[in-house]
Design a protein around this nucleic acid. Structure first.
Lengths: 222, 222
DNA sequence: TCAAGAAATGAATTGAGCTTCACGTATTGC
DNA sequence: GCAATACGTGAAGCTCAATTCATTTCTTGA
């Protein structure tokens, strides 16, 4: 025999893998999943298309990894906040703020990963990832409820609603071509307050705290 | 000359168009946009693929029309509620309930149209449609704020958050293959309550109503 | 420096659908 | 019934990207 991977080579291979991931991330941030074709990723990484397939089984696999890494990072940040100090309310506020602020500031990753179409496998991964985001909020909510800061509520539903709320509120602003939001701080604040209010005890608490199931319905709906 | 559309023919053409739209709707409901290829729509409608193009310029155009019709219908229902009687709070609750209940009950249209990937043009249409959904809530919110039922808030942000919240909370449950939610009523109620609380005055109002911008942040975030 | 084997290349292949189009069938007015 | 025109058909054509693979270039160990 005459060839055996040297540590140096091993390193180069690893770095190639990283270069591919980084290139893919950049392209998604710049132009969304749709514009991140394998050929483009290869070009961006300065290598041939065939090369990509030496490191990733398929396009979907590559992008799932990019997605999970990116969101994984966000989740770490959120977890640090969730496990940090302060009241549940403060931590919830801070967590939502952290995410929205970064989404508004950073590259278009947020839109691409949270809202943009992709193939089924990637889409499935996206749902998983969103659930993981929701888990962070579930943690905060659970603690808040235990501490009596928040009223009892359906954790899964509330967590999903929080993720959905800030996501949707961001999609417009961070969607490609959307005019840059004039006042990021204002938007961030509005979103955070919405979320915090949403899990806190209602103002007009007492009597009508839980409105009758279907009060204002005009007519039976077909 | 020797041919001129008779009223009868006119009617047949219109009915063909309807058949195409209906077939497309059924397919989307059953298998999502992805499975609703032109060939499949044609088969479902019992006609040839070429026929489709006699009635619609492109696949995107067809599906945009399906989308707008479907959501247009939902919006009518919501508007009826928004303009109906009751407090803003009651109407908000009823509106969210109407949408979520229908989404959970009805065919998979909601998922397909609100969350599923499609081509760029259709996606653009989806964003427009979501904004129209948001507009309904803006109306209710505006009235509620004027009436002193809700505290002042960023209407656009709150409306987007509401749409996002219930949408996200539904995506899991109505996503293809998701196990049917055990208790629809419970989920619906949780979502509605979340949304109503979110726009109502916070419980621990007074002092810390607006938490300091970034209270619990652990460390400067990269 | 060389042979063995691995890594890299990128042009060619493949596949999935949308869209077209040349041809057949219907409908209309006379 | 016939000419004129429109409607309907569905196989073929096209486009766009992902994926493959025969070939070339590089690494390694002796």
């Amino acid at each position: 025999m005459a060839y055996r991977r040297s540590p140096l080579m091993e390193e180069r291979l690893a770095s190639n893998r990283e270069r591919i991931l980084a290139a893919a991330r950049r392209l998604v941030a710049a132009g969304g999943y749709r514009e991140a074709q394998i050929a483009a990723v290869a070009a961006e990484a300065g290598m041939s298309t065939g090369m990509i397939y030496r490191y990733f089984r398929s396009k979907a696999e590559l992008f799932i990894e990019v997605l999970e890494a990116a969101v994984g990072h966000e989740i770490e940040l959120l977890n640090a906040i969730a496990e940090g100090s302060g009241t549940a309310r403060q931590r919830l506020y801070a967590a939502v703020e952290c995410f929205t602020r970064r989404a508004l500031t950073g590259p278009g990753l947020a839109y691409a990963f949270i809202a943009e179409p992709a193939e089924p496998e990637v889409d499935t991964a996206r749902i998983r990832v969103r659930q993981r985001l929701g888990d962070v909020f579930k943690t905060i909510l659970r603690q808040g409820i235990e501490a009596g800061e928040f009223p009892p509520q359906d954790l899964d539903a509330s967590a999903a609603c929080i993720v959905g709320a800030y996501t949707e509120a961001l999609v417009g602003p961070i969607a490609p071509r959307a005019e840059r939001v004039k006042d990021r701080d204002r938007l961030t604040q509005a979103i955070c307050e919405f979320c915090v209010r949403a899990v806190s005890a209602g103002g007009a608490a007492s009597a009508a705290s839980t409105p009758a199931p279907a009060p204002a319905r005009t007519r039976r709906v077909r």
